[in-house]
Design a protein around this nucleic acid. Structure first.
Lengths: 218, 218
DNA sequence: CTGCACGCCGATCTTGACCTCCACGGCTTG
DNA sequence: CAAGCCGTGGAGGTCAAGATCGGCGTGCAG
């Protein structure tokens, strides 16, 4: 109840430049969508939260869906950038794993809980939403998969499976960690998961058939 | 359009015993909820799919939410049984991993795609739904966590993190595998993931688990 | 054969949420 | 100083979907 007022501070009479108003509306919409989900969120709520009336909302966005999509696109892009940045931050593969894990944790911990729009959307039946959510997951997995394929020589199908798995672990555990308010600090959790994932992924030898003794390289 | 008629075969004039009618309604509701999600699914659709009129639906269930919850409970229980069964099916930990992975794959491959109700519900804002979904994930993770804690001696917090991770991998990859219609057969995918997970998890041995080469204490 | 009970159907009501129309006030120009 | 303009605000229309009431047909007891 304290951080909200940054988007509500104005006493409902202020005139704002168009760009700023739009940003403020996006902020208000994000708060409401995150707190209530798409369906329970009413345009009235968003307008009220922003301290404006409904018509101004419709002067900036054609409808509820487009407003939601604008936010979704924004945070999908953000996640993708984080993951790609983490993968590019080093050439050491173990550090890559750690950086990527940490990117997910940071993303989930990010202000406003916007990750819920991407990971816990309640509008996945809408094709436009489904497409974006699937696409960002796929793109993240592809980015990870490239590294895996390059390093292990697995087929693209197989390395994609592993990449989806690594992305999935990060996402699921980061959410669990956030929700459970676990005693274990973020860095420890990341380290733990990195150990798990790195030992797992480093176990795949360069040329293919699983089951062989661990031939790991760095 | 072919497998549907099993619940729609009757030409909308048949009288059914109460119990059978209820089961049939549950089947129809599952099909519609899976195909369209909770919000897009209309009671009209469910009634039509079942070949009855809306009032009979309300004679069997108090409302849309309760109907949904009945299905959700059913499939949550099913998942939990599968996972527990997999963990209890052997005492060899690697086979446990494999059996658990396979349980998730079998679950998502199950008829009717009912896993979507548990893993992709669009009603998580409803507390009753959220509670059930969270609870089943937690119970699965706890079941896995017990084995991990017993075998590695990690703290319960930490083994829970790993257990959530393993459950998360299984769930996410199984869904991806199903959605992507990957060329790689189910058994291969399970093997691949099992390798990943087992190498990862076997890297945490405290009590000299079988096959664990490096035993580090700390 | 006939009256009764029971479960099912068509048609309807209401609620709630998305999306626009009439009055008001501050800024600009002559 | 005055008049107009443009954006803001409250009140309302529409529609979809959840939830419900008067007929109907069937099977049984007497």
């Amino acid at each position: 109840m304290t951080a909200i007022e940054q988007t509500q501070a104005r006493p409902r009479g202020t005139r704002l430049p168009r760009r700023a108003r739009r940003e403020q509306l996006l902020g208000a919409a994000q708060e409401v969508f995150v707190a209530q989900g798409y369906h329970s969120a009413a345009m009235d709520d968003i307008a009220e939260r922003a301290g404006v009336s409904k018509p101004v909302l419709y002067q900036h966005f054609p409808g509820k869906l487009e407003l939601y999509l604008a936010l979704l696109d924004q945070h999908c892009e953000s996640l993708l950038q984080s993951v790609r940045g983490a993968l590019a931050s080093t050439t050491d593969n173990k550090q890559r794993v750690e950086a990527t894990m940490d990117a997910y944790f940071a993303y989930v911990e990010d202000e406003g809980g916007a990750f819920r729009l991407v990971f816990e959307s309640d509008l996945t039946n809408e094709p436009a939403v489904r497409e974006r959510v699937d696409k960002v997951a796929l793109q993240c997995a592809e980015a990870i998969s490239e590294v895996i394929a390059e390093d292990t020589g697995l087929s693209s199908d197989q390395s994609m499976l592993l990449a989806v798995g690594l992305g999935g672990v990060s996402q699921v555990v980061a959410r669990y960690w956030l929700a459970s308010r676990s005693e274990v600090p973020r860095e420890t959790a990341v380290q733990l998961l990195t150990s798990l994932a790195w030992r797992g992924i480093a176990g795949f030898p360069l040329h293919g058939a699983e089951g062989g003794p661990a031939g790991q390289h760095g």
